[in-house]
Design a protein around this nucleic acid. Structure first.
Lengths: 201, 201
DNA sequence: GGGATATATCCACACACGTGGAAATCTACG
DNA sequence: CGTAGATTTCCACGTGTGTGGATATATCCC
C-alpha cells in the first residue's frame, strides 16, 4: 500500500520554477487555442499547479497574455540592420528570408500566432496588435521607404505578412503549410519587392 | 396608467419574421464579436426574441453559424467566368477588382469576416475554412492554372486574400483600412499576377 | 367551432469560467 | 530556535453559457 503522491498543501520543497512553467504552458495554450478558449484552469493544469498561482504570479489572465505575446525581437531595429547590411537591390530578398526564418522559430511563432489570433477574436486586442504593427513595424519601415504613399506600402506589406501567418500556421492551407521555408521566402520576395519599390497600381 | 408593452407569452400575431431577424442579428454579431464572444442570448436580444427560438429555428449555435457563413456566391464559377470573359493578360487586374469589390459588399463581408475570425479561434472552424478554401477556391483555381505547382500558387494567392481581409477589415490597419477600393485593387493586382503567372522564386 | 401545428415565452439545470479569502507548508534570516 | 515572508493548495462565490422541458397563444385546415 504505497501512499499516493497527492500534492501536499503548502509550499513545495526547493526553489520555485512554477512561474516559468506557467509562462510556457500559457504560451502553448494561447497559441493553440486562442485567448478565449485557453483557460486559466487549463494552463495551471498543464503547468502542474493550482489555478490561483496564475493570479498570484501574473495578476490576471489579461496580464499573463500580455507577458506571453511580448516579442523577443525588435522588428524595427532588425529591418534597419537588414537595410544597411547589403545591396539595396536585394533588400526584398533578404527581408523575405529573414521574415520567414523568424516565423519558423518557435520563440517568435509562439508569440505572433496568439497575438494574431487574439486580434481576430478580442475586440480589445485588435487595437493592441494594430498599435504594435504600426509602432514597431509599419512606422519605422514607412519612415525608411520614402517615395510616394509609404504608409500604404507598409500596410500592404503587413497584409501579406499577416496573411502568411494565417494561411501557413493558423489555417494550415496546403501545400503552403508544408512548403519548405526557402520556397516560401522565394515566392513572397517578389511581392515584398513590389510593395517596397514599385509604383502601385 | 397605460399597461406596459411586456411581450405576451405565446405566438405573436401575423406572419413570423423572427427567423430572418435572428439570421441578420447573428450575422452582425458573429462579424463584430467572433464566434465565442457572440452569445445566443445576445443574438436573441438583438433579434427581439427569446433565446430558445434560436435553438428552435437552427438547432444549435454551431448550426446557426454554418448558415451564417454560407457564401452568397460561387467563387469557382465566378473565377471561371472572369477567366473566359476577357484577355488572359488582364486576368489578374480583373480578378483584383472583382475580389475587392466583393469584399466591399456587405453581403460577402458579413460572411467572410466571421468565417476568418472563427478560423482563428475555433479549432473546429479552421478545418472548415480550409476545406471551403480548398474546395471552392483553391482547387478550381489550381485546376485552371496549369504550369508548375498550381496548388502552391493558389494557396499563396489565398494567403494574400486572407491577409487583406484581416488587415483591412478585422485589424483595420491604416491607411489600408480607409483606402478606396480602386486603390487597393490596383495595388494587389501585380501580386495576383505574380502568383498566377510568374515563375516563383 | 375545434383539434393539430407552428410560433413563442418562461424556468431552470448543469457546467465552466475567473478570481477572492483563508489556511498550510516551506525558506530565509534574526 | 523562532518569526517574517514566500509559495502553494483548498473552498467557494458570483456570473454567464448553451440548451432542455413545460406551457401559452396564434394560425391553419377540416
Amino acid at each position: 500500500m504505497v501512499k499516493s503522491e497527492a500534492p501536499r498543501r503548502g509550499r513545495r520543497r526547493g526553489p520555485s520554477t512554477t512561474r516559468d512553467a506557467i509562462l510556457a504552458a500559457a504560451r502553448r495554450q494561447f497559441a493553440e487555442l486562442g485567448y478565449d478558449r485557453a483557460t486559466v484552469r487549463g494552463i495551471a493544469a498543464e503547468a502542474g499547479c493550482d489555478p490561483k498561482l496564475v493570479g498570484h504570479w501574473f495578476g490576471s489572465k489579461q496580464e499573463l497574455f500580455l507577458q506571453v505575446v511580448e516579442l523577443p525581437i525588435r522588428p524595427a531595429a532588425a529591418f534597419a540592420d537588414l537595410r544597411s547590411a547589403g545591396d539595396p537591390a536585394t533588400l526584398a530578398d533578404r527581408l523575405a528570408v529573414f521574415v520567414v526564418s523568424q516565423m519558423e522559430s518557435e520563440a517568435v511563432r509562439s508569440r505572433l500566432v496568439p497575438l494574431i489570433r487574439a486580434a481576430a477574436t478580442e475586440p480589445a486586442a485588435a487595437p493592441l496588435l494594430r498599435d504594435l504593427l504600426v509602432r514597431e513595424i509599419l512606422g519605422p519601415v514607412a519612415a525608411q521607404l520614402g517615395g510616394d504613399t509609404p504608409e500604404l506600402r507598409a500596410s500592404l506589406l503587413a497584409s501579406q505578412m499577416v496573411g502568411l501567418v494565417m494561411a501557413r500556421y493558423v489555417i494550415a492551407v496546403e501545400p503552403l503549410a508544408s512548403a519548405p521555408p526557402e520556397t516560401v521566402a522565394a515566392a513572397i520576395a517578389s511581392v515584398l519587392r513590389h510593395y517596397l519599390d514599385d509604383r502601385l497600381g
